[in-house]
Design a protein around this nucleic acid. Structure first.
Length: 462
RNA sequence: GGCCCGAUGGCGGAGUGGUGACGUAACGGACUGCAAAUCCGUGCACCCGGGUUCGAUUCCCGGUCGGGCCUCCA
């Protein structure tokens, strides 16, 4: 058995064969930190988090290097900083912290590496004497004839790679014919894109052979990948919308800089999340759902995680309240069945096999449902592999004292609830059901659901 | 206009050339003071038209509808 993944480049499921099983490399395009993450942004974070967990499960916990960048130099950041009258770093620090907190609430583990674009603009020399960084990379591309300077800009010449458009399957001549953007007069080819652009005095900038300026978007990822992971990585991931132009451009730059070496062995792209009614989520439609909004509305991080994993990562996903409710019901059922059992190593072959088959999380989840009845301990192992049952999920401080013990089980204690239950049990013993029901309703009002079982009354959060 | 996806039961969502996953919702039953939870049971889906086949929801062609990208975007 090998892991099979759908490679966008080949448009087919392929056997995943890392160059070095002891160092599996994956890079996913991370956020541009100028605003809160919405639920659509969370999908790739969660999907590739599951993939990273699966790779670690398969190749070993220390054999996977997963990098997810932070884009902290960008015109939208500059605009946001100007609007607030603060330094851009204030903006980027703030929203990076928000991003990490929001994703953490969804059970997303921090990646192995989180390179910041601004750290890779200037030349870097690593321990092996290798020179990396965006400016040296751009200079190299110019020297090789794949890029040219014009009016303070440096542009990549899309004719240079010879096969530009291969990933997105857009022939270059059609792109030229269909160009809708206004073409800057200094471009040799309408599809040429910016590697470097000049900064005004009040904009962030770096000194370069082409004057003071800042990098274009696409070069960031290429430079960070080269610096941290190497010329060819095993997996490059991101949202479907990044195929063109972002990944197409990354690919072209890196290949030209590295003597034609492919940037990635496998390209993975997650499908889009929509808000139903045919509307994509966008600020102009006013239908953006922030991860923080969902959490504030009382949806727990693992319910949101389950909702995101309920469809295959390449399929479109329509986000809705009904999906959240269904996810919550399903997760409650699982938790009740699994909370008290001891975690066991997962040995269900179907479970691993379906994840190995292009990360089929909906099917994996259906196996969890079956396991919950037949083998709760195995179900627990499966849920853990999928990233559920993390300490971050047990931030349940709803009322008073809540203690969390045993990371895997999250035993919740609350003296006040226990006292209320004791009072209700006494009322039931004297058949005072009016009082009994009053106590139950009161607790329900606080989100605490009582269940009378053979061994007494237990409670859980509704 | 170009390129690319998808169409499965009330809803979500896998999968398969031949005895219709899984979940959620609904309903019936057991249990229960009543609930909740749990267990048992019920409902019998694969867009349309051709084709290939002994047999197609599954493969091929056409159509219809829906979605995405081509511009910052996960």
């Amino acid at each position: 058995m090998t892991i099979r993944l759908y490679d966008t480049m080949r448009r087919a499921k392929v056997d995943f064969v890392p160059a070095d099983p002891a160092r599996v490399t994956m890079y996913v395009c991370g956020p541009t930190v100028y605003g809160r993450a919405h639920i659509g942004n969370a999908r790739p974070a969660v999907v590739f988090d599951v993939l990273a967990r699966l790779l670690r499960h398969t190749y070993g916990p220390d054999a996977v290097v997963y990098a997810r960048n932070i884009t902290d130099i960008d015109d939208k950041i500059i605009a946001a900083a100007a609007a607030e009258g603060v330094d851009p770093k204030v903006i980027t620090d703030r929203f990076e912290a928000h991003y990490l907190a929001d994703m953490g609430a969804l059970g997303v583990q921090p990646p192995t590496l989180a390179p910041h674009a601004t750290d890779y603009v200037a030349e870097r020399v690593d321990a092996a004497g290798r020179v990396t960084g965006m400016i040296p990379m751009i200079a190299d591309l110019v020297a090789k004839g794949a890029a040219y300077a014009a009016q303070g800009h440096v542009l990549f010449d899309v004719a240079a790679p010879g096969d530009y458009g291969r990933l997105s399957r857009r022939p270059l001549d059609e792109m030229i014919a269909g160009a809708r953007v206004e073409v800057a007069p200094y471009k040799r080819n309408p599809a040429d894109f910016v590697l470097w652009k000049p900064s005004t005095a009040d904009q962030p900038g770096w000194e370069s052979p082409w004057g003071r300026g800042r990098p274009g978007w696409h070069i960031e990822c290429s430079a960070m990948i080269a610096a941290e992971l190497g010329e060819t990585i095993d997996i490059h991931g991101g949202g479907l919308d990044l195929i063109f132009p972002h990944h197409e451009n990354e690919l072209a730059q890196s290949a030209c800089a590295h003597g034609g070496a492919p940037l990635a062995r496998v390209w993975l792209h997650n499908g889009f999340l929509s808000m139903g009614g045919g509307d994509k989520m966008s600020k102009s439609l006013g239908n953006v759902v922030g991860v923080d909004d969902l959490l504030a509305a009382g949806w727990s991080g693992d319910v949101i995680r389950l909702a995101l994993l309920s469809a295959h990562y390449r399929q479109p996903l329509v986000w809705s309240e009904a999906l959240l409710e269904q996810s919550k019901a399903r997760l409650n059922r699982w938790k009740r069945a699994v909370d008290d059992v001891t975690l066991e190593p997962l040995d269900d072959l179907r479970f691993a096999a379906t994840l190995w088959d292009d990360l089929n999380t909906p099917h994996a989840l259906s196996i969890v449902s079956e396991l919950v009845s037949s083998s709760p301990a195995a179900a627990k192992g499966a849920l853990r592999l999928l990233g559920f049952y993390l300490p971050a999920h047990f931030d349940v401080s709803l009322t008073e004292e809540v203690t969390v013990s045993d990371q895997a089980n999250a035993i919740v204690c609350n003296p006040l609830v226990d006292a209320a239950i004791a009072a209700r049990t006494a009322a039931r013993a004297r058949r005072d059901f009016a009082e009994s029901d009053r106590i139950r309703d009161e607790l329900a009002g606080q989100g605490i659901v009582l269940e009378d079982g053979p061994g007494g009354t237990t409670w859980r959060r509704g």
